[in-house]
Amino acid sequence: MSKKIPIPSNYMSEAVALGIDIGGTNTKIGLVTRSGKLIAKETTSTPDSHSIEDVLRVIVQVSAELISSNQVAIEGVGIGAPGVVDLACERVVEAPSFPTWDNIPLRKLISDALNLPAVMDNDVNAFGIGEHLWGAGVGLTDFIAIAIGTGVGGSIFINGELYRGATGAAGELGFTILTPDGPAVGGIVGVLEGYIGRRGFDREVAKLFPT
Rank of each mutant, 00 (worst) to 15 (best):
A15I: 11
A15G: 09
V16N: 00
V16H: 03
V16D: 00
V16W: 00
A17M: 11
A17K: 06
A17Y: 12
L18G: 05
G19C: 12
G19D: 08
G19N: 08
I20T: 10
I20C: 08
D21R: 10
I22N: 04
I22A: 07
G23R: 09
G23P: 15
G23A: 13
G24W: 07
T25I: 13
T25D: 05
N26E: 09
N26K: 15
T27C: 14
T27H: 04
T27I: 15
K28Q: 12
K28Y: 08
K28M: 05
I29C: 10
G30A: 15
L31H: 06
L31I: 06
V32H: 03
V32W: 03
V32C: 06
T33H: 03
T33Q: 02
T33K: 04
R34S: 15
S35E: 15
G36Q: 08
K37T: 13
L38A: 11
L38Q: 10
L38G: 02
L38C: 13
L38T: 14
I39S: 08
I39K: 04
I39Q: 08
I39W: 05
A40R: 10
A40E: 07
A40K: 10
K41C: 02
K41I: 01
K41T: 10
E42G: 01
E42V: 14
E42C: 13
E42R: 15
E42M: 13
T43F: 03
T44V: 13
T44Q: 08
S45V: 13
T46Q: 07
T46D: 06
P47A: 06
P47M: 05
P47Q: 11
D48W: 06
D48Q: 15
H50L: 06
S51Y: 04
I52D: 03
V55G: 00
V55S: 04
L56I: 14
L56W: 04
R57C: 04
R57N: 09
R57M: 10
R57E: 10
V58T: 12
V58A: 03
V58Q: 04
V58Y: 02
I59E: 00
V60K: 11
Q61V: 13
V62G: 00
S63R: 09
S63Q: 04
A64I: 01
E65T: 14
L66M: 06
L66R: 14
L66N: 07
L66D: 03
L66T: 11
I67Q: 08
I67D: 08
I67K: 09
S68N: 13
S69R: 10
Q71L: 09
Q71C: 11
Q71A: 15
V72C: 04
V72A: 03
V72K: 04
V72I: 12
A73E: 11
A73K: 06
